[in-house]
Nucleic acid binder design. Structure first.
Lengths: 234, 234
DNA sequence: ACTTGCTTCAAACAGGCGTTTGAAACGTCG
DNA sequence: CGACGTTTCAAACGCCTGTTTGAAGCAAGT
């Protein structure tokens, strides 16, 4: 009797590997329907394997879930690496890049990212997989944001304040991902296309933050150019 | 044979009313565990009624859920009404009040508010109950915010921009409610107590917004005064 | 060919789920 | 009281869930 497959080959066949197929299907299913609503039968149907396979490879549903979260997260890190800047890049530019990157990763139209949906579920209602997610994925990203803000404010603010400002920036992006459907109910569709695209939002969030920090003109300045980043005021 | 109780008394007994007891228990249970994980048996156990009661009063689980969301929302509106300001109140003050009110309603320590948790679930993954929630509850609140911002910017920005700025403000509050546990993993506990209490956050979000709009000094100014108004930087 | 170990499969299992049932309890009116 | 509509109840009904089972398939190794 075997409770779970004892040892896994280091780097197996790939798409042919049943284990990989199950993980992918499970991620999609868990992301879409949540842990409880997703069923092992549906997952196995989508993966093209027998229902007993999940028990054979992962033991039970809970461990399959945890593995699929980690799997999705690893895949996503591989897809969207942290930004690297050349030395001398102005911090305003770095902030804009960071925000644009974050929004693209969250809302990116490149592909409906079920990985992000799955991770969002963990953020909103953490389970065992959450801590790993935070340590491996979220904390490093957040640290980059804080360091950019530190550079931007040239040491005038302490880390606690910087973290709080970082949360303000992340929160704005977060809203559109987590509560996107409600946002779409609150503003007209034309406005969504115009002002709430990932790129336009990146401009807005960056301008908003830079203005708040005194690194750019306030949003109410007369030209009211919304679409381009601007350097410090005259 | 009765599919559902035909007509409901206008304003029934109150706590003695089984219907009311079921709604309350259901709201708590749905808020805590989600629609699928919450079971009718547990709800009825908590409400002290027979399992058949929910079918008798509401027909089935789905309609019970919808009713319980509406019930929670009505209760919450009664608890925390929209702010009313005397004529002549400065818009900076109004913004601060609004943000403080929003944060208090979302994070308020007065009581662990299962109603908010339930509504948050609707926002994050809308069902049929969501549209009503938006129309009756969220949209009016958001309209108030936009009108305050309009007053604050004295017509220099159009409604679309104002709505986008409104989203920025709401997003910051939203993060702490929806992703609170992750926030707590990212910043030290002492910092949470100090800078992330509802009141401190209200100050921060307001200052951040006012500074961005040029209605107060940037956050990096030396005295770091929170709420005093000041015109655009030199 | 025969064993050996890993993998797959159809079928079944026990338990929990939402829902239904038919009768008992209740209160109210004639 | 006896009849009646409303409300409660214990028990059951299907159905679907996660999980297990024992046998069959399969690719080496000897």
């Amino acid at each position: 009797m075997v409770v779970a497959r004892q040892s896994r080959q280091i780097s197996s066949a790939g798409v042919d590997d049943p284990r990989e197929r199950i993980l992918s299907a499970a991620g999609r299913e868990f992301a879409e329907r949540g842990y409880d609503s997703a069923t092992i039968r549906d997952i196995c149907l989508a993966a093209g394997v027998n229902v007993a396979a999940v028990n054979y490879y992962f033991g039970d549903k809970r461990r399959l879930y945890i593995e699929s979260v980690k799997h999705a997260h690893e895949e996503r890190v591989r897809q969207v690496p942290l930004s690297e800047w050349q030395p001398g890049t102005p911090p305003e530019r770095k902030l804009h890049d960071f925000v644009a990157n974050l929004l693209e990763r969250m809302l990116g139209l490149g592909q409906p990212p079920w990985q992000v949906r799955l991770m969002m579920r963990e953020v909103l209602q953490p389970t065992e997989a959450c801590r790993e997610l935070v340590e491996d994925y979220i904390r490093p990203h957040f640290a980059v944001l804080v360091s950019v803000l530190r550079e931007l404010t040239a040491g005038r603010l302490g880390d606690p304040e910087l973290r709080r400002i970082g949360m303000s920036i992340v929160g704005q992006c977060f809203l559109y991902r987590a509560a996107g459907q409600v946002v779409e109910m609150l503003v007209p569709q034309s406005e969504i296309d115009m002002l709430h695209s990932p790129a336009a939002l990146a401009d807005h969030v960056t301008s908003y933050g830079l203005a708040a920090l005194g690194a750019a003109a306030p949003l109410t300045s007369f030209p009211a150019a919304g679409a381009s980043q601007k350097d410090s005021p005259a």
